[in-house]
């Protein structure tokens, strides 16, 4: 188990290096420097600016010094907001994004697992079709459509909930969490239905039934643990998706989080900001993939043996 984690961590290092290098050279190959778009600036000012951001050095030297900085956790200064570093901006945006992602994940897990388990208990009946059709609806209703519609209905017409903001008015976190969580709830519902169906047809469940255990006990004590493995394996990619989804949701609800900063940085062509945040996102996503793989391993003894044997 530990060995597996260690191996995976080792494998993550070249992946991260590739991400950092690819992003770095991509950003530096962009046509037009970050300062060339501005109004006529005297050449000496541009030179001074370029010296300040090390842009006057050859590319490989910039690359080496950037790698060194990243290793020490320093993602460099922002081009756009002079005097602020990428680290500061990430620190400013992370709390809101993390909180939003957590609530959304909670919404997704609660709705998704209960719908999937309900459907798997009575396959091919109304109890199956209804939640699964709703899941299909959730998949085909992207967040940039669901969000505005929820705002229109619950914010503007019914006036039950605030239409935007984050932590200013009570209840303003509900709509963003639902908007971001719904799509994932739908995927989780399909995954947990599939997983539960497979587990419920196994011998040990039949034994449990034969022993006369009650249905809830069978589901909660015996079936869930095995049936939810696909869901656990999905958590890593889901987390990556939540970060991407937060671009839209944070824009719609005007939440001061990482996603909104990233989109703004994209519009401002704030290259160091984009570079730094991409490196940050990639690290996070690789870490979460690792965590969810290990969780799935811990839940499934068969896989555990295989992984132990391989490494």
């Amino acid at each position: 188990m530990l060995r597996f984690a260690f191996n995976r961590l080792l494998q993550a290092i070249p992946v991260l290096l590739i991400v950092i290098s690819a992003t770095f050279f991509l950003v530096h190959s962009a046509p037009g420097g970050p300062f060339s778009a501005d109004k006529a600036v005297p050449p000496e000012v541009i030179r001074a600016l370029e010296a300040q951001y090390n842009l006057d050095q050859p590319l490989w030297q910039q690359y080496i010094s950037y790698l060194g900085d990243v290793l020490q956790g320093d993602l460099g200064p922002s081009f756009k907001y002079s005097g602020r570093t990428v680290n500061e901006l990430i620190a400013a945006g992370l709390p809101a994004t993390a909180e939003l992602a957590m609530y959304a994940m909670l919404v997704a897990l609660i709705i998704g697992i209960s719908a999937g388990v309900l459907a798997a208990m009575r396959p091919n009946t109304m109890q199956d079709y209804l939640p699964m059709s709703a899941a299909m609806l959730g998949i085909c209703m992207p967040s940039f459509l669901l969000g505005p519609i929820l705002v229109l209905v619950f914010g503007i017409h019914l006036e039950w909930l605030p239409v935007s903001g984050w932590g200013d008015i009570p209840g303003d976190k509900i709509l963003p969490a639902i908007t971001l969580g719904t799509g994932y709830a739908a995927y989780i519902a399909r995954l947990s239905r599939g997983g539960m169906l497979e587990v419920l047809s196994q011998d040990y469940i039949r034994t449990a039934r034969a022993k006369g255990l009650s249905e809830p006990l069978i589901i909660f004590k015996h079936a869930l643990r095995g049936g939810l493995i696909p869901v656990v394996a999905f958590l890593g990619p889901a987390f990556a998706g939540l970060l991407g989804g937060s671009f839209v949701v944070e824009t719609i609800f005007q939440i001061p989080g990482l996603g909104r900063f990233y989109v703004q940085a994209a519009f401002n062509r704030d290259y160091t900001m984009i570079l730094g945040m991409t490196v940050f996102f990639a690290t996070l996503i690789i870490l979460f993939n690792l965590l969810s793989d290990m969780l799935a391993l811990w839940l499934n003894p068969k896989l555990r043996q295989q992984a132990g044997g391989d490494s």
């Binding site: 993550a12 992946v15 991400v19 992003t23 991509l26 950003v27 962009a30 990556a240 998706g241 970060l243 991407g244 671009f247 990233y262 989109v263 994209a266 062509r269 984009i274 945040m277 991409t278 996102f281 990639a282 996503i285 690789i286 993939n289």
Partner: peptide, 13 residues
């Protein structure tokens, strides 16, 4: 393992 959504945004920028 790569965060593609982010990469596409980057490419477009």
């Amino acid at each position: 393992a790569l965060p593609f959504m982010i990469f596409i945004v980057l490419l477009m920028v």
